[in-house]
Write a protein that binds this DNA or RNA. Sequence first.
DNA 1: CGGTTTTGACCAGCGC
DNA 2: GCGCTGGTCAAAACCG
Length: 311
Amino acid sequence: MDDNDKVDPIAGGFSSDSTWTFPGDYTFFGTDGRETAVLNDFGWNFNPLPPVLDRSGSDAVGSSASLPEVGAGAAAAAVAGEVRSGSVDEAGDVSMSSNPVVSSSSSEDRVESSTAVSGGKPPSSDRVGKVKRKGPKRIRQPRFAFMTKSEIDHLEDGYRWRKYGQKAVKNSPFPRSYYRCTNNKCTVKKRVERSSEDPTTVITTYEGQHCHHSIGFPRGLVPYHDQLQGASYATRQLPPNLLTLMNPGVNINNNYSRPPFHDHMIGSSLQPQPSNALIGDHHLAQPSSSQDSHKDQGLLGDIVSPTMRNQ
DNA sequence: CGGTTTTGACCAGCGC
DNA sequence: GCGCTGGTCAAAACCG
Ligand SMILES: [Zn+2]
């Protein structure tokens, strides 16, 4: 009933400015490609050409599979927008910021210590007792949040999503939508919500990696935008050696997937596991310049500053 | 007719 | 121990 009725202590969160900071210590390493690695690990290939893949021990998602690394993602990102520096914390948090011009950093994090593990339907008499409580606990995969400036809540990223829930966010008049990949075997989930202070900013949080190639996508930062109108991108994806997937034994040759860069990406963040309560989605934002000439229509745009957290 | 969205209810973790 | 919040499911409604 009353979801956003009462403001909780987290009030300082989003309502501070348009900038966010990281709670822990992050290591800045400029565009070394770490953030890219994370992106790649996530399945977002900014760069189709992987000349640099020499990551042996993937430490990104230490779950049960080695993530592939494409490397060079930063470059692509830079091309797409202006990714400049990235920060990674010991836990593996990677954050990228592009413009230091940000107004200031307000320490904030999305409080998400809770693990959202299960919680769906109860076998009660009313509801068909069908609670598929599969494992005792659900493993939360790293989350990758993208901040995009768009009026559209649902940005097309080339994948088909099915909305499975919507909840009101505390502190925000805007509700949060929960989407899940329509693929049967794909467990990727997506959360879309609007910033409470900046209704123009949409925060899309991806969780998990797709085990299948995306189907067609708008137009975004494709390195070879010369011919990506038809199925070119599909053909020119990255070599099979960089794509691996998070599933053991499953090797996808091409997973050209990219985040939903719509008009203007402000920031993104990736979170691996919530060990502490300070882990949440941190997004860096701040456009500085920018003339938004194009309007948001669901396509890739300029990335301002992506942030990711990965363990 | 199928798929998707909508909406309410419910669960599990965490806080207090 | 209770309450809160976030997260999920499932039935119905909606749409093509
Ligand atoms: Zn998928």
